[in-house]
Amino acid sequence: MSAAAGAPREWPDRVALRFALNGRAVDAWAAPHDTLLAVLRDTLGATEVKYGCGEGVCGTCTVLLDGAPINACLTLGVHAQGRTITTVRGLAAAAGAPGTAAGDMHPLQRAFVAHEAAQCGFCTPGMLLTAYALLADHPHPTRAEIRTALGGNLCRCTGYTRIVDAVEACVRARQGGDRA
């Protein structure tokens, strides 16, 4: 990019974005001020990414950017350029289980169902992605570590206990698998 002082600069009001969404290349036009949340929900129809506070506090807009959990509400769409975005729909496929496709369930999702860890379900996508990122870094967290890791994701319904139970059960099932 050239920035010779005084040279007239062009300010594009639309940017052609291309990134990987749940393993598929997607293209979208975005204004520089479009948040990633707006690009995902409004342009690409990925309404599994929820809008809660818009201020980085609640965690329901969590997506993984190259595997790391981020606030889609406080990230610009242009920051996804050339990168990988995972939403809850891509969780099973992101885990790389053979034969999985977008829409399949990850063991964490099955544990959430088994433990009735959702009521209204609005926080659930963010909870699952945050738990997934935790387990990617720390395969065997303690209950206290799970609680700390999920501390930035708010739930208005469940009282959190069943959510932590579900993640813990998933960890224990894995440990069983490791020992077998």
Partner: peptide, 13 residues
């Protein structure tokens, strides 16, 4: 979810 418009530039240096 929506930011007011701004002009955006991403310098390399």
């Amino acid at each position: 979810m929506y930011l007011p418009p701004f002009r955006y530039v991403a310098p390399r240096t």
